[in-house]
């Protein structure tokens, strides 16, 4: 009972925090966009700009309320936001919510694949390195991780394209589906083929972080008194790792992986750009370059919410799974 109540309070506070976070971010990003050299009218009209006279511009500006004080403009936008209306994307000519939904459905596959891959590979590498600390295998893993940690995602992406798409020709160079084919004719295999390179690129870069953290945590665990005592009871090797190592190192690793949503998102933006993969990342770059203000703002809010969710899950895992942070019980002996 007490635990459910505590969990409820925890979630309530987090919701309030999410709301204030979004409010803060919406104000800051709105002000940033307002003060940027983006001209929303030009973005709206595009190439036909020459055919639009100053009077017509004036009328559009008036219609959109662009001459109102900034604060009033923000209130207008924010109040429709609260009503669930994110506005209409200027480059896609569709509601922003629709665009995000569609792009996200592509990105989530990419991000999820990369996330799971980097989590599993990174965790394994970290554990192996720690269990064989100061041996050649540990040094190789460490060296590999430091190299990866200092490798930008886009550069890794370019390398992958060069090697696996251009030279070896194993995978397509870019896009999410084959070009020149009706969308009904696109097979699952086609989609997977287009996913492989971006997903591997994104996960390779994510591996270093989780591997190095897991390694350090595992070293701490192995040096702990409870491991010493387990060894004194005759446990060793895999049994020792399975019984005491894994459960103590998995929790921080999983939390870290959820908390790494921000890096995942950031990595996806660059990777999608390199592979012309039609996801959220590419949409963000497009929206920024072509001055699609409603879409840009919508994406900013969405990515903030995405990262916040990752962090929330990380906290929640500790809260629910770790017995030490649960409601303390006391029993008289």
């Amino acid at each position: 009972m007490a635990r459910a109540k505590n969990l409820g309070r925890f979630l309530l506070w987090r919701s309030i925090r999410a709301f204030t976070l979004l409010a803060g971010i919406s104000i800051i990003s709105f002000l940033l966009v307002k003060n940027s050299p983006i001209d929303p009218i030009q973005a709206y009209i595009g190439a036909d700009m020459l055919n639009v006279g100053p009077e017509q511009r004036e009328k559009i500006a008036q219609h959109w309320g662009l001459d109102d004080p900034v604060f009033k403009q923000y209130v207008n936008w924010a109040s429709s936001l609260l009503g669930g209306d994110l506005g209409t994307s200027m480059i896609y000519r569709e509601p922003v919510a629709e665009v995000i939904k569609e792009k996200f459905s592509h990105s989530i596959v990419l991000m999820l694949t990369a996330w799971v891959l980097s989590g599993v590979i990174g965790f394994t590498m970290g554990v192996v390195a720690a269990m064989n600390k100061d041996t050649a295998i540990d040094r190789i893993i460490k060296w590999y991780c430091y190299t990866l940690a200092s490798t930008p995602a886009f550069w890794m992406g370019l390398l992958m394209v060069m090697v696996f798409a251009v030279w070896l020709g194993w995978f397509p160079v870019g896009l999410g589906v084959p070009a020149g084919i009706l969308s009904d004719d696109v097979t699952f295999i086609d989609k997977v083929k287009h996913l492989v390179l971006p997903a591997i690129t994104l996960s390779i870069v994510g591996v270093a972080n989780i591997a190095l953290h897991t390694r350090q945590k595992m070293i701490d665990v192995l040096a702990s008194d409870y491991i010493l005592f387990a060894r004194a009871r005759g446990e060793r090797g895999f049994i020792l790792f399975w019984r005491h190592g894994l459960r103590n190192v998995a929790l921080p690793a999983i939390s870290l992986q959820f908390a790494a949503f921000s890096e995942l998102f950031g990595g996806a933006v660059l990777t999608e750009q390199v592979f012309s993969y039609p996801g959220l990342g590419q949409a963000t770059v497009e929206a920024g370059l072509r001055g699609d203000v409603p879409l840009l703002l919508g994406l900013v809010l969405f990515s903030a919410l995405f990262v916040f969710t990752g962090n929330l899950i990380a906290d929640l895992i500790y809260y629910v799974v770790d017995p030490r942070t649960r409601e303390g019980r006391t029993y008289e002996s």
């Binding site: 008194d225 409870y226 010493l228 005592f229 387990a230 004194a232 009871r233 005759g234 446990e235 019984r243 005491h244 459960r247 103590n248 929790l251 770790d322 017995p323 030490r324």
Partner: peptide, 17 residues
């Protein structure tokens, strides 16, 4: 753990999880 056993100092020697 079979013929020779250790009784450690404190609760810190038990696996916390």
């Amino acid at each position: 753990g079979r013929e020779i056993a250790l009784v450690p100092q404190s609760v810190g020697y038990l696996d916390p999880l």
